[in-house]
Amino acid sequence: MELTVKEIIAWLEISNTNIQENKAYLTELDQAIGDGDHGINMARGFQEVLNKVTDQEYEAISDVLKDTAMTLISKVGGASGPLLGTAFLKMSTAVKGQESLDTADFAAALNEAINGIKQRGKATEEEKTLLDVWSPMADYFSAVDQFSAEVITETAKDAMEKTKDMMATKGRAAYFKEKSIGHLDPGAVTSFYIFSGLAEAVKGGKN
C-alpha cells in the first residue's frame, strides 16, 4: 500500500485521539523534567489540527500536511509547537505534487522534517528530544519497502523508550541535567503517539 490523503487524514485523527487520551500523562511527564504544559499544548494543537483538516476536502497530501503545520505553528507555542509544525511544513514541501507516498517517499519527507527540526531547535540526536523518535523512524522507513503497522509501532516505541536513559542537553529538560536520566522525554512520547497513529492508519484503523 501507499499513503494517500485518506491515510494521512486518518493518521492525524488517530494521533489526535492518542494525544487527547494521554493528555494528563504527557503533562505529568513534562512536570517531571519540564514545566508541565506539554500535554496541554499537544492536546490543544492536535484538536485544532483535527478541526482544520476534517473541515474540508483535500486533493493533495501536501495541502493536508501544510494545514497541519500551520495549525501547529499558530496554535501551540512553546518548543514543541513550532518544531512539530516545522516538521510537517518540511514534509509538505517534500511531497508536493505527489498523490501517494511509498516508504521511500515518506522517508525522504521525514528526512526533510528532521533537518527542519534540527535547524530550528539547534539540537541533534541523543539530546533527549522528539528528534530521538523522528530520526530512527526516518532511518526505519528508508530501510523498508512496506508499511508494516506492527513494526512501525515497535520501532517508535523502542526509540521513545531509549530517551529514558538519555541526559537532556536541549530544551527545558536540559536544566535537570543528570536528573533528567530515568524519565521519558515528553516530546518523544508525543512523537510515539504520532507514529503509532500512523501505524493504525496504515492498518485502516480509522475511516
Partner: peptide, 11 residues
C-alpha cells in the same frame, strides 16, 4: 502573552 508557561506563537 502565550498560554501559561508556553511561549506565544509566531503569528
Amino acid at each position: 502573552s502565550g498560554e501559561v508557561f508556553t511561549s506565544p506563537t509566531p503569528d
